[in-house]
């Protein structure tokens, strides 16, 4: 009996010690989460109902004034309309070409085709290179070096550069995003493809399944959960993707290259001058969150329900 009590006490002491240890481990990260996630987002909602008072230097409640401005801008501002349109185009092009090519490239690497290791390294390389450096090399190459070649090949064309010509600017920014953005996607897709059971693939080969058929009927359905995850993350990106506009043009981004991401970013880099815009940006962010969240959840459900099955 005494032995049982002793054991129970030891057990209780261990449980107590475990609990203290657990609290010590999670205390700091949890406090950080409470301040920089819960409070920040809660404060962001409150900020959306305020206005910066330059006389007193504090934010005052002004009701739904900022939301009215957001909806007014969505309805009438050409810059906001262009931003919405460009953000949707960037998403569609990214999905079609970026994701499509990333899937095919991943398949090439997964099938261990000629030079697959070299290509995998090269595809990942832009991901580890600073976007500042990538943009700088690309910018000077396309606008200072390539026009020379183009004007020599087509005399009299007077081409001034892909980023300087009004008609090619936006397309060039989109190209850059896709061109430099395969790395992590390919890594994730190849990882998922490597998890496919070899016996399924071998059985398909015995049944005479070709490369294309294998990709469509086996590989893609088997990695569909990874595709769904990246697809959903990209939807959220509609409201945040800046397509590197700030890196290419600074604050002088041409109107036809504006995206929602850049529209909301531009006032954050102007220091104290942007303080008065913070409430408006918070209101816009809130509207975006309210619009995008149900889309993300519905698309996720639809993809899970109607997407190709691994069965």
């Amino acid at each position: 009996m005494t032995e049982t009590v002793k054991r129970e006490r030891i057990c209780l002491k261990k449980k107590y010690k475990d609990l203290i240890f657990y609290i010590l481990l999670i205390a700091i990260p949890l406090a950080q989460f409470c301040i920089f996630y819960i409070y920040v987002n809660f404060n962001s909602v409150l900020l959306a109902f305020k206005r910066f008072d330059y006389d007193t230097g504090i934010y005052r409640y002004v009701g739904v004034e900022n939301f009215a401005r957001v909806f007014r801008d969505f309805a009438s501002s050409e810059l906001v309309s262009a931003s919405v349109k460009n953000s949707l185009i960037a998403y569609a092009v990214g999905l079609l070409f970026g994701t499509g090519l990333a899937l095919l490239f991943s398949y090439y690497i997964y099938k261990k085709s000629f030079g697959h290791k070299f290509f995998q390294v090269m595809l990942f390389l832009p991901s580890i290179v600073s976007s500042v450096a990538m943009v700088m090399m690309f910018k000077y190459f396309t606008d200072l070096a390539l026009p020379e070649v183009i004007n020599k090949i087509f005399p009299g064309s007077e081409f001034i550069g892909f980023l300087s010509e009004e008609n090619t600017r936006f397309g060039t920014l989109l190209f850059f995003c896709i061109w430099s953005g395969f790395g992590s996607n390919v890594l994730l897709y190849v990882g998922a493809m490597n998890g496919i059971n070899d016996s399924i693939v071998e059985a398909a080969h015995l049944d005479g399944c070709g490369t294309m058929r294998e990709f469509i009927s086996i590989t893609f359905p088997m990695i569909f959960p990874t595709f769904t995850t990246l697809f959903i993350v990209n939807i959220a990106g509609i409201a945040t993707n800046q397509i590197n506009a700030y890196l290419f043009y600074g604050l002088d981004v041409p109107p036809n290259c504006y995206t929602l991401g850049f529209y909301m970013f531009k006032d954050l880099v102007t220091g104290t001058a942007g303080l008065s815009e913070y409430p408006y940006l918070s209101a816009m962010g809130l509207v975006m969150t309210v619009v995008v969240t149900p889309i993300v959840l519905v698309v996720r459900k639809l993809l899970i329900k109607f997407g190709p099955s691994a069965e």
Binding site: I26, L30, F33, I35, F36, Y37, Y39, V40, N41, N43, S44, L47, I232, I235, A236, A239, T240, M264, L268, G274, E277, Y278, P279, L281, S282, M284, G285, L286, M288, T289, V292, T293, V296, L297, R300
Partner: peptide, 24 residues
Amino acid sequence: ILYGVVIFTMILPIVGSTPSSINV
């Protein structure tokens, strides 16, 4: 709950909280 919080925050696309972070 903590595991659920991580998944939830990864799915929920919160936009535009940067001004609030700066203010904090």
